[in-house]
Design a protein around this nucleic acid. Structure first.
Lengths: 251, 251
DNA sequence: CCCACCAGATTGGTAGGGCCAATTTGACAA
DNA sequence: TTGTCAAATTGGCCCTACCAATCTGGTGGG
């Protein structure tokens, strides 16, 4: 058993704490059971109902528009888009920022996407890594070692290692997607590593992966990443099984 | 040679035509050579310089913030983020919407990400497709056939087919990413299919892929997708080679 | 009875002014 | 040199007003 965490917060850091007006609008939409294509109240009415100024509403709607959750039609109104068909990945990030949990299906899908991207990405990293990439990976490893030794929550160390590997792919577009993924799963990752026993194992796998990437052994690195991800995936699938009775939150 | 296009626009449709204030701010940033971490002028000053109201500035900044290109620090200012490290995929979509072309590296990276996602995605589609997915795929094929027969630009047909396959993965998160990809490459795709000779070949490959997905032959479907994408990739890599001398635009 | 037409209401888009709280800055005093 | 406090600056937010386009409903002509 790792040493008891002494004064470590029991909640993951919430750095950005976005204005919650977006959340209130989403809640309003959810409460009204508005479905794709339906029209939201006018900006003026929303402002009145939510007791904020119209400018604030406009700003929030602009955000929702950029993540393709709504569509503004001048002189007509604001319409809900088919969120599962049109929504962007950032729509999920936005929801996560606001504390709205993803549902179980989304978590499974996210895990699946992660496996696809990171396994293939690790292979690319093994082929293309440069000195600066290796340095970042090694730095992440070092921070991880200290965190394991200190019994701290491993979540940010884990994220930094994976982001460093994603950076080593030398593919900035892939990195953007992976980055969004880690923003999306901050809370989940934090809870996953709340059990201090997971950290040492993860760190070991990270070290092995880093060695393979250093050696330029792309295939081995990819295989190690696949194995590494399977540990976490197993945990989540088990958790989702347990929650079948009625639980819905998972973020 | 396909029949000459009679009255077909020479530019792809630009449905959304976002407010270009975001573009003007980006131009302002580019012009000032602002780099990551630097502070933008205050909202009031930006409003004055760009000759718009502060509300408009605030909306644009809110958009840039959601795609993680800037960070607003209350009582301090607006700061540029490390766009290649923090930026979201939607930041690229935003740029594409605004008509700012991606640079060559980004195009290559996008192509690479596409291959990873769509090849793996097609395999999943072959395993999970439901009746409704097959219906959408077949509908896309039918529209494609008509477009080929009529000699129309195949771009939207191509996109719809690929989006239908992505939907058949039953992974909404993956679908979001693929969707963003197709938003990003609308213009490029349009130009690619401006040469009418590419459409019949693409349509044939689509038909073969659809058959494999229908049959539930996931491995074959994935292989067909890989081959299909290689045709387009070859074209782009060739184009990028030609442009080495000085060209920079590629969107 | 039907349809074309027009005025008023509604809507998103935008400008501009003002207030607040928090931070930064710099002058002043010990 | 150092501590302190007031003024300027900044993002966050509210409010009013105006515009252009759209939508609505009623009216008048056929």
């Amino acid at each position: 058993m790792p040493p008891a965490h002494t004064a470590i917060s029991v909640q993951p850091a919430r750095e950005d704490e976005r204005s919650d007006l977006v959340a209130r609008i989403l809640a309003f939409v959810a409460e009204r059971r508005l479905t794709s294509g339906e029209r939201l109240p006018s900006e003026r009415e929303l402002a009145e109902r939510l007791e904020v100024g119209r400018n604030a509403i406009r700003e929030a709607i602009a955000v929702l528009e950029t993540v393709r959750m709504v569509e503004r039609r001048p002189n007509s109104g604001i319409y809900l888009r088919a969120m599962d068909r049109d929504g962007s990945l950032d729509a999920l990030v936005l929801r996560a920022d606001l504390g709205v949990p993803l549902d179980e299906a989304e978590v499974s899908e996210l895990i699946e996407l992660r496996r696809i991207l990171e396994v293939q990405g690790t292979e690319l990293a093994g082929l293309r890594r440069r000195e600066e990439d290796l340095a970042r990976i090694d730095a992440a490893l070092e921070v991880g070692r200290r965190a394991v030794a200190a019994g701290e929550n491993f979540a940010t160390c884990d994220a930094e290692f994976h982001l460093a590997v994603a950076a080593a792919t030398r593919n900035s577009v892939l990195r953007r997607v992976v980055n969004s993924f880690y923003l999306l799963s901050r809370t989940r990752r934090w809870h996953y590593f709340a059990d201090g026993r997971r950290a040492p194992e993860a760190q070991r796998q990270h070290e092995a992966m880093a060695a393979a990437i250093h050696a330029g052994n792309a295939t081995a690195a990819a295989g190690l990443m696949r194995a590494h991800l399977q540990s976490a995936e197993a945990y989540w699938h088990e958790l989702l099984q347990q929650r079948l009775p009625g639980g819905k939150a998972a973020s």
